[in-house]
């Protein structure tokens, strides 16, 4: 028997001509036609709370941030000192902002590059039928997620403290080091610790994402592969990975965007230090907005918007892949 395996082709993958797609879009949605008269009011009533919350907590802050960014405003007095694009000009020349941007991107990329393969590997293992106690493992890996970020930061601060932290005590007792190691004394080791602690905490969440994706791969495909004599490696690389690729792109996007929001761990673990060397954008904005009196809301708003633009460009550059992935996801039915 040959062990040649082919990835099962989706029913109509790549076969949909543009014209056909347009025709499909024009097809009237029968459900929409059913909402008539008085029911429309009900639809509005049920949507209203969400719309109000969206307006108040998403749209309004966004518009306000854009507005504030054109003023030198301390957040308290009247907003009357219009500075145009002055805040943006200052930020573009602010070395600390760019250091924070670089640190944020390093954190996001490193964090994503480590946590996604690791969590995928663990998800593959935990979805194996032969493995006993999967619930226990799932709980163990998920547990750090329920610990508040601030608490996690404090725990690791004490664990890693060179004066009397458990890690250094162990290293010294085992004579692995002669002097305590201060991982927060150096930009790169401090950033690495931030990445690793963050992964430790969020790992379970991504594992669950991957497990959800993996469980959507039809069992019959694996059964067919078994009949063909496929090895576990072949099943993983020729069935699992291609089948979950559409969801993987979305998970990757989520992982990157979430990692760019890093804040709590920086506050509790490094405080942006040593000096300012582990500043990330969220921390920079927080310090600008609230770090000194008078506050610099205008400047902080401009920094937030500028970084949002940078992040938006990065994220939309993945948009092509995401759209393709979404299309594949529908076609694969995962």
């Amino acid at each position: 028997m040959t062990a040649t395996l082919e990835t099962p082709a989706p029913p109509d993958a790549g076969a949909t001509p543009p014209a056909r797609r347009r025709t499909r879009r024009r097809t009237p949605d029968p459900n929409r036609d059913q909402v008539r008269g008085f029911d429309k009011l009900w639809v509005f009533v049920f949507l209203l709370p969400f719309l109000l919350l969206y307006l108040g907590f998403t749209l309004w802050p966004l518009v306000a941030t854009v507005y504030y960014s054109f003023f030198d405003w301390d957040g308290i007095g009247p907003i009357d000192n219009f500075v145009g694009v002055g805040n943006y000009g200052s930020i573009l020349n602010d070395k600390l902002f760019w250091l924070a941007v670089v640190n944020t991107l390093i954190f996001a990329v490193l964090n994503t590059a480590i946590k996604l393969p690791l969590s995928l590997l663990m998800a593959i293992v935990l979805t194996r039928k032969w493995l006993k106690g999967t619930k226990v493992f799932r709980t163990v890996f998920f547990a750090p997620l329920i610990i508040p970020v601030a608490m996690a930061g404090l725990v690791f601060t004490y664990l890693l403290n060179p004066s009397n932290g458990a890690l250094n005590a162990l290293l010294l007792d085992l004579h692995i080091v002669d002097q305590p190691v201060d991982v927060f004394a150096n930009r790169w080791s401090a950033l690495l610790v931030l990445v690793l602690v963050s992964i430790w905490q969020i790992f379970g969440q991504y594992m669950i994402y991957w497990m959800a994706a993996l469980q959507n791969v039809p069992e019959e495909v694996y059964e067919a592969a078994d009949i063909d004599g496929a090895s576990e490696w072949q099943k993983a690389t020729l069935i699992t990975l291609p089948m979950i690729k559409p969801v993987a792109v979305v998970i990757l996007l989520l992982a990157l965007v979430n990692a760019m929001h890093v804040f709590g761990l920086v506050v509790t673990l490094t405080g942006g230090g040593p000096g300012t060397s582990t500043y990330v954008v969220s921390y920079f904005i927080y310090q600008e907005a609230f770090g000194s009196v008078p506050f610099s809301y205008g400047y902080a708003s401009a920094a937030a918007l500028l970084f949002s633009v940078i992040a938006f460009v990065l994220v939309t550059s993945q948009g092509v892949f995401v759209r393709r992935a979404q299309q594949l996801r529908k076609e694969y039915g995962v």
Binding site: D182, F184, A185, N186, R187, G273, P274, G275, T276, S277, G291
Partner: peptide, 13 residues
């Protein structure tokens, strides 16, 4: 806190 930031940066680095 700039003065302390540069001192800490120089101290630990």
């Amino acid at each position: 806190s700039g003065e302390y930031e540069v001192m800490v940066e120089a101290l630990v680095g």
